[in-house]
Design a binder for these strands. Structure first.
Lengths: 110, 110
DNA sequence: CTGATGTTTAGCATCTTTGCTAAACATCTA
DNA sequence: TAGATGTTTAGCAAAGATGCTAAACATCAG
């Protein structure tokens, strides 16, 4: 996947308010799919699809733990995904720190 | 318009790659609608609608200059729009500088 | 094995987005 | 005023996004 496609996927994923809220919730620590779904007035299958979009964009990772599937926020990927664009458009207002993004840097594949 | 709605509009506007490219192009300075359209393999009416979305999100401003309509990038609005979210989700990787966003700060209405 | 629990997949309906062309509107020039 | 140029609005078709329910899959507990 090219860097541009990765960026596109991230912005596409961030377009939906439910998905942005999921990412905010995951900032507080890992959550199981069901725990996430319980926080919204939306059916579990719909949340599952949102999680799939986030996973496809690389913004979360998942692992099975017994019965449940645990989702984890991938902060670096978020910073990487929006980083090039924000640096290009409003570098005076937003600064990317540390590993977030370096010009020409390679990022690992998912 | 609430702050949350403003944030939603900004992220929705950023979801489209053409609109992101328009913002990047405007970083180089003001451009007329026709000058912007000339940079894409997309019809002028379609570009006009993209510009309307960007304007609706507050990411650009427009002014008429004789025959033409000149679009200007609103960097602060972009930083403000994405700022709260990025601060909430990946504060370690992204730093907001100066007027970009302050907790509880009021932003002017459009 | 059976049933309960957690989660995803499949299929459908509806709304939104995005592209196009044709036409209208606005301004400049002659 | 008439025509040329720049831009937007209107209307349509195709593609995508998002919600739901029903059903399937995976794992745990008895």
């Amino acid at each position: 996947m090219t860097e541009a496609q990765q960026e596109a996927g991230v912005f596409r994923a961030l377009a939906d308010p439910t998905r942005r809220q999921i990412l905010e919730d995951l900032r507080g620590g890992e959550l199981a799919a069901g725990e996430i779904a319980a926080r919204f007035a939306i059916s579990a299958p719909s949340i599952s699809r949102h999680l799939g979009v986030l996973k496809g964009a690389g913004l979360v990772t998942e692992r099975r733990e017994g019965n449940r599937i645990i989702y984890t926020l991938a902060q670096d990927r978020l910073a990487t995904g929006v980083g090039r664009f924000l640096s290009a458009v409003c570098p005076e207002q937003i600064v990317l720190r540390r590993t977030a993004w370096r010009p020409g840097a390679r990022s690992e594949e998912s």
